[in-house]
């Protein structure tokens, strides 16, 4: 399997403080990799480094075999990014937001795929023409997920993607991620939701204070055991 994302002995600093310290992992084509960690563990920093927003102080970071800084446009074209608590434009409707961002990504926004993506994230049809300022947090998150889907990028970087979603929507989202991975798209999601990570990820990396302290791999045809990950996450057992 081709490696699409790779961090090797990666260290990153923000405002003079080391946030990632010697982190190594890789994501292959069609794989869902979850980075699990508490607040301040360095999860979002990892995503921003892949996107070329933060340069590594040491080590290596690669998207499709190239450092993002080498060809920032190519790296970002290959990635659909869903930031944590993504705030799209409140004065635009869901459809308008999607049209704007797709056009920004130099895609031709068509009505049909937009409606299909909004169907996939189960956003009620009557809400799609309303301004996002009238949406709940979960509804806004659904629109942002729809945007990530519409980008048709081979790699998805998802930052706390289920934040604000209700349990039904979370289950639907997990199904969607599995579907995308099955279609060959690679997903790197960072989360502190142990249960969610175990539901979708083929592998899980445990991040603590900027260091990778453990990893879990799903058995063939099965899922990673939630209890084991939870125990390691909580520090009850060594990861």
């Amino acid at each position: 399997m081709k490696t699409v994302l790779e961090a090797r002995d990666l260290s990153v600093e923000r405002s003079g403080k080391r946030v990632l310290d010697g982190v190594s992992f890789s994501v292959t084509e069609g794989e869902v990799f979850a980075l699990l960690g508490g607040n301040g563990a360095g999860k979002s920093t990892t995503l921003l480094t892949f996107l070329g927003f933060l340069p590594p102080v040491s080590g290596l970071v690669q998207v499709n075999g190239k450092a993002p800084a080498e060809d920032i446009a190519a790296a970002r074209r290959a990635i659909a990014y869903l930031p944590e608590a993504a705030t799209l434009y409140g004065h635009l409707t869901a459809r308008e937001n999607l049209r704007y961002f797709l056009s920004l990504a130099r895609m031709r926004p068509q009505a049909e795929p937009i409606e299909a993506a909004l169907d996939q994230v189960s956003l009620q049809p009557d809400a799609r023409g309303r301004q996002l300022s009238s949406y709940s947090k979960g509804m806004r998150q659904k629109v942002a997920i729809a945007l990530a889907l519409l980008r048709e990028a081979p790699i998805l970087l998802l930052d706390e993607p289920t934040s604000g979603l209700d349990p039904v929507a979370i289950d639907e989202f997990h199904g969607l991620i599995r579907l995308l991975a099955g279609a060959g798209r690679s997903v790197l999601m960072v989360t502190h939701d142990v249960y969610g990570a175990c539901q979708v990820a083929g592998r899980i990396g445990l991040l603590r204070h900027g260091q990778m302290v453990g990893s879990f791999t799903a058995p063939a045809g099965g899922r990673i055991e939630t209890e084991a990950v939870h125990a390691a996450f909580a520090g009850r057992v060594p990861a």
Binding site: I72, A73, A85, F101, L104, A105, R106
Partner: peptide, 18 residues
């Protein structure tokens, strides 16, 4: 402030756009 900066920049592909 709205938390859209990285999303916009990453979606646009270039540092200065849009």
């Amino acid at each position: 402030a709205a938390g859209r900066m990285e999303l916009l920049t990453a979606t646009a592909g270039r540092a200065e756009s849009p």
